[in-house]
Amino acid sequence: MTTSNASTSPLWLLHPARVPKALRGWVIPVLLFTWWWAAYRFAWTDSELFVPLSKVIETGWRMSASGELWHSLGASLYRMVTGFVLGTVAGLIVGALLGVSRLFESLVGPSFHTIKQVSLLAWIPLISVWFGLGDPAKIAFLSLAAFFPVVLNTFEGIRSVSRDHIEVARIFAYTRRQVFTRVVLPSATPSIFTGIYLALIYAWLATLGAEYLLTSGAGIGNLLVDGREHFWMDQVLLGVIVVGLVGFILNWSASKIEARLLSWRGRSVAQF
């Protein structure tokens, strides 16, 4: 049944054999954009709640030419990178201390595990009171978003180092420092990387959250807020697309770096 229908249905074009593997991920976006374009082209809708694709492209072009888009994107990325770096570095230090020192873990661990239960968004009121609505507040919020996953995964990675490997190092008379740099750290790397990778994603998500909730200055989030307030749907949709693209690029580069750094784990896990 299905095989006889296949040749008549338009889905036949999407048969796995006809779409090269590398392009398969593009199938859904292309369909979506085609449908979007068609909805206005064939006048299926004239709703004000949505705008034609052409209008979004036009707005994108205009804002890009005026520099407004790049200015906003730059401001957002700058915050994200600053917050991400601060949060990750702090997270690595705290996670490593928790993992290495039983004393530090018993002192700090319980408080840390309690605080991490507090929803990130619940920090916003406190942060806005302490740091205002400007960049410092946003960066503080972003670093917090990046901090938690890095701490947890660094701790987890260090604690799950195999005793068998530690014994090998002891047999070869390694000092504590050598055990840490040559056994603990490399074996925790995959887990640490997972933490950093999550931090990157969280930081980007939190950038938007921060710009949306702490509205001052420029940023992609502010573009979205402005667009919504003035009912510029083209600007809102442009913002959504840019946010999605940045997220995709971050994700993609992180997975490439991971595959390269951790090639020793073999094809089964390292390849995306």
Binding site: D164, H165, I171, P186, T189
Partner: peptide, 14 residues
């Protein structure tokens, strides 16, 4: 003194 265990205990990252 050197030892070989039942599990090879090689470091997978090396």
């Amino acid at each position: 003194r050197g030892i070989v265990f039942q599990e090879h205990r090689l470091f997978p990252w090396l």
